[in-house]
Design a protein around this nucleic acid. Structure first.
Lengths: 253, 253
DNA sequence: CAGTGGTCTAGACCACATG
DNA sequence: ATGTGGTCTAGACCACTGT
């Protein structure tokens, strides 16, 4: 197995014309670890080696490894537990609820929604889908339309577009409620972050039928691009949300 | 002047019934520094003492002070610049745009909006305002209604409610475009974070007139409670936003 | 040049979890 | 008792900024 050679903190060649500037050691350590997680070296929930072991393997100090792991913990890639170890973060319902599902009832606790699939199948990426997912137009994609309910009442009508490679097998069996956990465990695609653009729109016929609101009623439209931890866009999702007794929570800090 | 006594990292009395658990030294250092900023020991943009000076004053190590300052930088309380020093964060337009103003044009760069005040005056807090601001109902509040434009076109119609203490003088002279900077420099209230709840609603008569949209057109309603760095709610703001060629940006990470 | 924050190291000890 | 991450310290050196 190849040894991980890390350049030292000091520049090896001061006259070099590298445009990268200075790359701290702890970022290189982080890069190695993120890459290993992205390649599935450990499963979600599994413990990674201890700081001391990683430090020994990469020939650096425990403090440097710690700084790398602290950054990864801040990005929700990893969970650290004193006395137990460092674990690859899982997309369990609690995390989804905290990080990715921002819709909550006006009164009462946030809950994870139930889902009902309305349509699923393969299609060719139109111009918008191709642009959002970084594909060539016409590339195969999986298209999934579903309805999500909170407290037994339909709340979200959404359309999800994924690259057929590697997600095509999704069409073959029932899809679970929690998709991001499935992406990670079955397809090795770990979603790291997402960017959402929100608009208020008038309900169209399909949305109004699904959500039980009048046509033209105001709905919150959430346009999300979710990105894997290797930085590649992995999912495009448009959700129309009822907000009569729900709201979208955004923390500014 | 009182000396800042910090407890050591080890528990002074293992049999003590203190419910606080363990309070790391660096958090106590942070607490001291946050408190000094909240009390206006340094103005926004001003440099605070160097790590070495703070460490000497509080009789701790540079590394501990650094950890405190790093956390404060992560919370946007402070800006650190290599070679120059550590500065109290200012609510300049760039920061507002990044942290608090999430509305951006669908095409083109985000910009800071212009504002036009429609009404300002003193009032008694109704039940909702009192609850949001942690006041007794009937307490005096400042109420400000304004219209904000992007690219010369009205985009946001908003109502802002503030405690009359200490904000009453706002009514006496023209209010600037950037309110959070004013809160900090003139009233010593530094906004640290905010929680926004979003809904899609139908435009009412006042909103539709101000924003130039049809009555009943869908608008994005943003209900914000902004909190000062000492943790107290300082502002309640409800904004109705046009989203035909704008969107609200939410980064999930 | 001196002074600042940033990185890296090494070691000691603490808090926590598990066996 | 052992091993994990968390805190704290001390010191060396690097990168950056201003004088």
């Amino acid at each position: 197995m190849a040894v991980n050679r890390l350049t030292l903190g000091s520049r090896p060649d001061p006259a070099s014309s590298e445009p990268v500037g200075f790359r701290p050691l702890y970022r290189q350590v982080k890069e190695v670890l993120v890459d290993r997680i992205a390649r599935g070296a450990w499963r979600g929930g599994e413990a990674i080696p201890s700081e001391i072991e990683i430090a020994a393997e990469l020939a650096t100090s425990q403090g440097t490894v710690r700084k790398a792991l602290d950054e990864m913990a801040a990005e929700n890639l990893v969970v650290r537990r004193q006395g137990r170890g460092t674990f690859v973060a899982r997309h369990d319902d609690a995390r989804i609820l905290f990080q990715f599902f921002k819709l909550a009832p006006d009164e009462g606790e946030p809950r994870f929604p139930e889902s009902r699939v309305l349509r699923i199948g393969l299609a060719a990426a139109d111009e918008a889908a191709a642009r959002h997912l970084g594909l060539a137009p016409g590339t195969g994609v999986v298209e999934l339309v579903r309805e999500r309910s909170l407290g037994g009442r339909p709340a979200v009508f959404e359309r999800i577009v994924l690259p057929a490679k590697p997600f095509a097998p999704l069409c073959d069996r029932p899809v679970p409620n929690n998709l991001y956990d499935l992406y990670a465990t079955r397809f090795g695609v770990t979603i790291g972050r997402a960017r959402e653009r929100l608009k208020a729109v008038a309900a169209g016929p399909e949305e109004s039928a699904s959500l039980g609101v009048a046509p033209g009623a105001p709905l919150l439209l959430v346009d999300r691009i979710a990105t894997a931890i290797d930085g590649r866009p992995a999912e495009w999702r448009i959700s129309a949300c009822r907000t009569d007794d729900l709201h979208y929570l955004s923390d500014l800090r």
